[in-house]
Design a protein around this nucleic acid. Sequence first.
DNA 1: AGCACGCCGACT
DNA 2: GTCGGCGTGCTC
Length: 720
Amino acid sequence: MSSENGRSDRPPAQDPPGGEQLALIRETVRRAKPPRARPRTWRGAELAERDPVARVLVDKGLLHLDRLFDYAVPAAMDAEARPGARVRVRFGAGERGGRREGGGLVNGFIVERRADSDFPGVLAPIAQVLSPEPVLGPGLLRLCQAVADRYAGALADVVQLAVPPRMARAEKTPAAGAPAAPPPPPRPPEASSWARYPAGPGYLRALAEGESPRAVWTALPGPHWPDELARALAAALASGRGALAVLPDGRAAARVDAALTALVGGGRHVLLTADAGAEARYRRWLAVNRGLVRCVVGTRAAMFAPVHDLGLVAIWDDGDPSHRDPREPMPHAREVLLLRAARDRCGFLLGAHSGTVEAAQLLETGWARPLAADRDAVRASAPLVRTVGDGDEARDPAARAARLPTLAWSTVREALRRGPVLVQVPRRGYVPRLACDRCREPARCAHCSGPLEATGGDAPPRCGWCGRDTPGWACAECGGTRLRGRVFGARRTAEELGRAFPSVPVRTSGRDHVLDAVPDRPALVVSTPGAEPVAEGPGYAAALLLDGWALLSRPDLRAGEEALRRWLDAAALVRPHTEGGTVVVMAEPTLRPVQALVRWDPAGYARRELAERAELGFPPVSRMAAVTGPPEAVAELLAAAELPPDAEVLGPVPLPVPDAGRPRRPGGPPPGERWDRALVRVPPGSGAALAAALRTARAARLARRGSEPVRVRVDPEDIG
DNA sequence: AGCACGCCGACT
DNA sequence: GTCGGCGTGCTC
């Protein structure tokens, strides 16, 4: 032993086996300055007899030190320093004069206890065991690692998404002793409305018998899906296994929670959503982690829930953007659940009224089977869908006053005699943008050419860039002097509809005030997508889907899919056409998403989209990653990365330079700066190699110099 | 990212 | 002979 502070001349007596390294650890621990005294803090006495080395995941999301570090376990912490426990360790200290100092305390998780260490230097002791609760167990750790690998991200970042923050009070168990997990439900659930799907009862039966069927479920319109999803969970429970369902928002989760409670009673599952509060959420999460509860219904973060012995993972409406976690490395719930299903060999259920290309691909590759109703059943439960193109002008004055084409106006008027009418508007707010009423050219500020925005009421429009009021506006193209709103927000629409139908109450539901349900009485319900209340009883008498062209004109690969998804989610709340349910969509009838809505054929639409993506080599038929940053940095990273041989680099191309003074988009270039973006594309089998190559190259770059940020995004959303 | 070490020039 | 510039590399 030749370390200058090794002191091998005086080895400690009664060394347990472990050789020089162990002696070195003991010496290090003996010499190290004990941290300030705290409860559970090591005070500098002895080292744990067995496995005195703890492998620690340091909770710093820095990619270039995304690996495990060994620490010495003091004897006093031996019992609590279990794998999975939260600890605090000194990190980042250098060595000076053989004495360890400096380095801040950081949080981490013990991943493993070992007899020895590969680290040639001296080990620092664990500073504190925050809690012995094994919150990062082996199964959850492996899942986090798989997600980090999939997304070229840092393990510590993923763990932060997967393990909820500690709430000490929630960890206290009742003094009466650990309660036992309730037994599985005595019998599998009845098929009930699953009988409407030819493969439905068989799917439930397979789950209940302990098999692991995988399905993409195109749900029929109507109010049955929460109960059907609950039945799938109950079937998995009945097999003695656990189950997990991820929903796009708290309202949807609450509906499935209620359905499941009605089916199997309370105590067998927990609801994991944000609005339960941090402590209650952690308490429920702990119950799952301890194996006391085997079933979870929750929102996005629940995708990591450490359910024991998974029999089924399920996701509802996987196209909803909230399924992608906005934090690094931005994992998508569908992809995380796919990883879990593959690793745990459990059942998989992806359900939606619409269909994503990813779901279509699961079917096309044969990995999952379709769970869809016959055309006859679809026709019987879907509303009648009619289209109104942009050219159809309002002819009668009442309709014109409501800014509605005649068909839309008469449909609403007629339906209001029978029940509530849903009006879906694409954006909330108050007429965000204006255009010339005569030539439809976007209205621009005479001073700086910025877009004009309405400010509300009768106030003159204002420029969105320079903020000037523009009282005497005239169109630069045609000289027109009248303005019209290009996109009508919920409030404006509600106002105008209220004027057009003065005898009917108008209710709005949007991000601020979301209504859960409306009674089965005539009312106008104006809502933004995703906030539509459920109509009690048979459902809405009609729905009006406004400004479809605004949704479809976005230069986004997913614009059509997303428009169709929003329309179907709203239209699914309308009663069947056999009971008079009608949907009017204001969009060009020749567009494919519009036709798919009229025919109620989301699966067919997704299949065609998938075929088109395959032709173009777009995701998910290929796996893509985006590399963005200053041009030299992007070029250097691509040159340094050992990309798989079948990788194809597209670009780099310059990103649009954001205008100075506009708020910076997160993850985008700073205002006024030129950034490049390159796309790297590989065939499906090489996704892991691509992610690994980009992660390694980026880590090496970060380690070399902290400057010049390069962002790597796997499955980039906004490729046009 | 921090933070320490190290090898050069200007000062006492 | 000593202080301190920040270039380079590590963090158990």
